[in-house]
């Protein structure tokens, strides 16, 4: 309306936040941190409780993610450790002397594929192993001790341990292969289960967030039906309205995410400071390993993204049903 008879425009301060246009990452960052005024009324009190709910969700998500990462780290450690040693325990029997038993076992081992080396532990070795528990000088020569054979296997092509165990018992009754492996297998599957459980928690948390944001978006739209109608009658497209709504949810999601992240960081740091050797699901919970902290940043970003996309899809679908 440049042609209306003009009165000098009043010179009151900037009417809407007029920021110089920014580019690239700076613009993205400022869009994430500073909420510009929306044409849609913001949810007010609902906004705060929604932030808190999202914060709680993100707290759980961060814990689950941290747990999943820790567990997967530990299991990969274990997998690497498998290249380690096997032990063969030789118990005294009446049928053979210990020396005969050991010789027979060593013979079988020397002919087995995948065995790198085998060495019978002598009395001195046994003494060195036991003295930390029994005290120096208390391991007397007449103490009846089982004999042990330390076996190194090739991790890349390990021997068939079942067959090996049977072969050993066959040549030397009383000799027993202790594979640690069965034990480790069980630990591994427990750990894997824990890892999957953690991912399942992540999925459930994400699904819950989608449900909550969908609900909040619908509630917001129906509470602001009049605004939506006026916008439509003024010529607004659905995507304009969606953009205005989703901007609000971007901030709700991101703020909630940051609060949740902060809470979980506090929890992990507390665990680390406590420095205890507590375990959970057999995983040492002495806090999160340093290299995994950055991964937690993913949580608030994902929260913002999930919240924005959900809000957008909900708005578009809801509006489509209107005239």
């Amino acid at each position: 309306m440049a042609n209306t008879p003009a009165k000098p425009a009043s010179d009151d301060p900037a009417v809407l936040g007029e920021e110089p246009p920014r580019k690239g990452y700076a613009a993205m960052l400022s869009a994430l941190l500073v909420e510009t005024r929306s044409v849609m009324p913001s949810a007010g009190a609902t906004g705060l409780s929604l932030v808190l709910v999202i914060a709680a969700m993100c707290f759980l998500a961060s814990l689950a993610l941290g747990a999943a990462l820790s567990v997967s780290h530990v299991t990969s450690d274990w997998t690497r450790d498998l290249s380690g040693a096997l032990t063969i325990e030789v118990k005294p029997t009446n049928a053979m002397t210990p020396d005969e038993q050991i010789r027979a076992v060593l013979y079988v081992l020397s002919r087995s594929e995948g065995v790198v080396s085998a060495k019978a532990l002598g009395h001195e070795d046994m003494k060195a192993l036991l003295e930390p528990w029994l005290g120096t000088g208390n391991v007397t020569d007449d103490l009846p001790l089982p004999h042990l054979i330390d076996v190194r296997i090739d991790a890349t092509s390990p021997p068939d341990l079942e067959a090996l165990a049977q072969a050993i018992v066959a040549v030397a009754p009383g000799a027993q292969l202790d594979t640690h492996r069965q034990w480790q297998d069980q630990l591994m599957s427990a750990a894997r289960a824990a890892e999957w459980l953690a991912y399942a928690v992540l999925i459930v948390v994400a699904a819950t967030m989608v449900a909550i944001v969908t609900f909040a978006t619908r509630a917001g739209l129906s509470a602001n039906r009049e605004v939506v109608e006026v916008l439509h009658l003024t010529g607004a497209r659905d995507r304009f309205i969606a953009a205005e709504v989703q901007r609000h949810f971007l901030h709700l999601g991101f703020r909630g995410g940051m609060i949740g992240l902060f809470l979980s960081l506090t929890a992990f740091l507390a665990l680390a400071l406590q420095g205890s050797n507590t375990t959970m699901f057999m995983v040492p919970m002495s806090g999160l390993r340093l290299e995994y902290y950055p991964a937690l940043l993913f949580v608030p970003l994902a929260a913002a993204l999930v919240s924005v996309l959900t809000a957008r899809i909900t708005v578009m679908r809801t509006l489509h049903r209107l005239l």
Partner: peptide
């Protein structure tokens, strides 16, 4: 209506103020 049309605020601020004054 101008915002809905996607016009940047700087392009219409003065016009809107003038109209309001009028």
């Amino acid at each position: 209506p101008l915002r809905i049309q996607g016009r940047p605020e700087a392009s219409y601020r003065d016009d809107v103020r003038e109209l309001l004054a009028w």
